[in-house]
């Protein structure tokens, strides 16, 4: 039967590829964790769950550059992008390098939310070593220039009058802006639509085109378009304003309760079981970082608020945020890890 021999020769090549694959994985594994556990960091690499150019990736690179420019570190730490599974891949990568003093990551709340929404995932943030919280990134509310809504409370009132007609553009259903909408709908009883887009650019053009009425995001998403007069930022979520948007009131001033909304934060975590020596090595550098002028410039330009909390304080903060996010996802029926 010639057909069968043909098929088997095809399968043989497939098997050859498979063998190649197996060799590859053996070689790759050997190259990874060469540093002895417990050693002081010597060749640090910083993991981010973003592709190059994503928000977390850019922030990580800026942070490293500031530390290098200010001689806090003697060489630029390489950035390793592990975008697979929207933080799950990055966490697996770190868990595979247990005890490695050279593996740290810049984490965001996505690292808490994503593993909760996927079935049979055996990674979570609490396996990693908390190093320090460095900053929070208050969400701001933007509208198109000339919009009838001059505050978040305006928008909510309008949404109460005509439920289910106004539109917020944003990210995926588990992203912070979507969860904040849930909290607001719950506390005010107003209802509006949520238009998901994969990338920030499309969310903004939806606003510019008039398909969406509001958008929540980080200050840096909007700052240039606000300067050009295309968008206006009307509200800063939380209790403290941003100097970047002097005209925007806070949600607290506008009488909108967002205490239960998750906070967008930026923190540094280490591989599981990282030695105390390594943890304090990084904390020492990060505490110097947040004191530099370059950091002040970066935070004020990017709309970040410095909130340096090392070690235990950060661990407690993580627990609080985990509870908030977990409850919200539970309410949505998206929690799959229990």
């Amino acid at each position: 039967m010639p057909a069968l021999t043909r098929l088997s020769s095809g399968l043989a090549v497939a098997a050859a590829i498979a063998t190649l694959t197996a060799c590859g994985s053996g070689g790759g594994g050997g190259g990874g964790g060469s540093a002895d556990a417990g050693d002081a960091p010597s060749r640090t690499e910083v993991i981010t769950h973003n592709d190059v150019g994503g928000g977390s990736d850019v922030f990580t690179r800026q942070l490293i550059e500031i530390m290098s420019d200010n001689d806090i570190i003697d060489r630029q730490w390489p950035v390793q992008n592990v975008p697979a599974g929207d933080s799950i891949g990055a966490m697996s990568y770190m868990i595979d390098r247990e005890g490695d003093p050279d593996v740290i990551a810049q984490m965001t709340p996505t690292w808490i939310a994503t593993p909760m929404t996927v079935e049979d995932v055996d990674v979570s943030v609490d396996q990693l070593t908390p190093i320090a919280l460095v900053a929070t990134e208050p969400q701001v509310v933007a509208v198109k220039a000339g919009s009838p809504y001059t505050s978040l409370s305006d928008f909510i009132e309008a949404a109460e009058e005509s439920p289910g007609t106004l539109v917020q553009s944003g990210g995926s259903s588990t992203a912070n802006d979507a969860l904040t909408r849930l909290v607001l709908q719950e506390s005010t009883g107003a209802e509006w639509k949520f238009l998901s887009f994969e990338d920030t650019g499309s969310r903004i053009t939806a606003l510019l085109r008039g398909d969406a009425d509001i958008m929540m995001g980080s200050a840096s998403d909007f700052s240039e378009l606000v300067r050009a007069g295309d968008l206006e930022v009307v509200t800063v979520i939380g209790s403290e304003g941003l100097e970047m948007f002097p005209d925007a009131g806070t949600s607290e001033e506008q009488g909108v309760d967002v205490a239960d909304a998750p906070v967008q934060f930026r923190a540094i975590v280490g591989a599981p079981g990282m030695s105390e020596e390594a943890v304090s090595y990084y904390q020492d550098r990060l505490s110097q970082l947040v004191e530099t002028d370059d950091w002040q410039t970066l935070t004020s330009e990017a709309g970040l608020v410095t909130d340096y909390r090392p070690g235990e304080d950060f661990a407690t903060y993580l627990e609080e945020q985990t509870t908030i996010i977990g409850d919200l996802l539970d309410g949505l029926g998206l929690r799959k890890d229990q």
Binding site: G53, G54, V58, D199, G201, E224, A228, E301
Partner: peptide, 26 residues
């Protein structure tokens, strides 16, 4: 507009930000 159309565009946008050039309409 500061809006990238592709993966490579996003990287170039990131580079502009790292250079402190504030990509946008201005």
């Amino acid at each position: 507009l500061g809006i990238p159309g592709s993966g490579t565009g996003a990287v170039l946008l990131g580079a502009l930000v790292i250079y402190g050039l504030n990509p946008g309409p201005l």
